[in-house]
């Protein structure tokens, strides 16, 4: 971690299918829109969806990067393994997961740590993780600046797993200030109230994302982040607010998407207050 310049956001959860990938993509797109050099790393090695959500293809993946890094470290160039997403002036890099499940199985955690360190020229690195406390995920949670801990509170076992996951993170001594609790689909019709979940978990949600199924669908079908697929959706606005909180954007959110790029400084990181000060 010494000398690491990037802000690393780990998008983590303890249930699948609750919007991790979508969140990772829209955070990456948001950081890029703000003018930050951004890299999105799909660490759902077996069944990652980032590439198909963005309709990207690439010859090289993390598997090839691992081979190169272990066999020819001197000739290794990180850029060779990244693919660029670009649209209307917004662009960010993506490191794709291995194509074959067998290759995914062979990925070495130490190599992934090395790869993340080699991405340090990016201002923001967004990690799309899986819903399990695996060796890889724990290594990434160790390395990251922020754990974007996301959940959908529509199903009691999912709420249980959210609570169990949060307690486990605290037991593993991740600082509370590093963990941002994000509730996804917060306004959808359900019988479990956010306030009750907060009471159970013992911590307030850092941010709530509304539900907009048609917008999400359109985003996946067109292969574009929400800011292009559904610019007016409340979900798009909400992601933009979340990005603003992570970048400590000064002008808040009303004008959102049309907003000017904010200055690429990390003063907020050095300043007092931390994440929960906003």
């Amino acid at each position: 971690m010494e000398g690491h310049q990037s802000v690393i956001i780990a998008v983590f959860s303890t249930s699948s299918g609750i919007g991790k990938t979508l969140t990772a993509i829209n955070l990456a797109a948001g950081f890029a829109k703000e003018g930050y050099e951004t890299c999105l790393v799909d660490l759902d090695l077996q069944f990652g969806d980032v590439m198909s959500y963005l309709k990207l293809t690439s010859e090289y993946t993390l598997a090839e990067a691992q081979i190169a890094l272990t066999t020819e470290p001197d000739h290794y160039d990180m850029e060779d393994y990244l693919v660029k997403y670009s649209h209307e002036g917004v662009s960010f890099s993506v490191l794709p997961p291995p194509r074959q499940i067998d290759d995914a199985y062979l990925v070495d955690v130490a190599v992934v740590e090395d790869i993340i360190r080699r991405l340090s020229h990016f201002n923001f690195i967004v990690l799309d993780l899986t819903a399990v406390f695996s060796t890889l995920n724990l290594a990434m949670l160790d390395m990251c600046t922020i754990i974007n801990y996301i959940g959908v509170m529509d199903f009691l076992p999912a709420v249980k797993n959210y609570k169990v996951g949060y307690d486990t993170l605290l037991r593993f001594e991740y600082e509370e200030s590093k963990i941002c609790l994000i509730e996804n689909r917060s306004d959808s019709e359900k019988f479990i109230y956010s306030g009750d979940v907060e009471r159970l978990v013992g911590e307030k949600f850092y941010h709530r994302l509304p539900n907009d199924f048609p917008a999400v669908n359109k985003s996946i079908q067109t292969g574009q982040p929400l800011m292009f697929a559904a610019p007016l959706s409340p979900l798009t606005q909400s992601y933009w607010q979340l990005v603003g909180r992570y970048t400590n954007r000064r002008t808040p959110t009303k004008r959102s998407i049309q907003e000017e790029k904010s200055p690429g400084a990390f003063s907020w990181l050095l300043g007092a207050g931390g994440w929960h000060a906003t």
Binding site: G17, Q46, D49, I101, I220
Partner: peptide, 18 residues
């Protein structure tokens, strides 16, 4: 798998060979 985002069929296709 549960049909959701549409990617699930692809995940199943990748799993089946195993």
């Amino acid at each position: 798998t549960m049909l959701n985002s549409g990617q699930e069929i692809r995940h199943m296709s990748r799993s089946m060979p195993m």
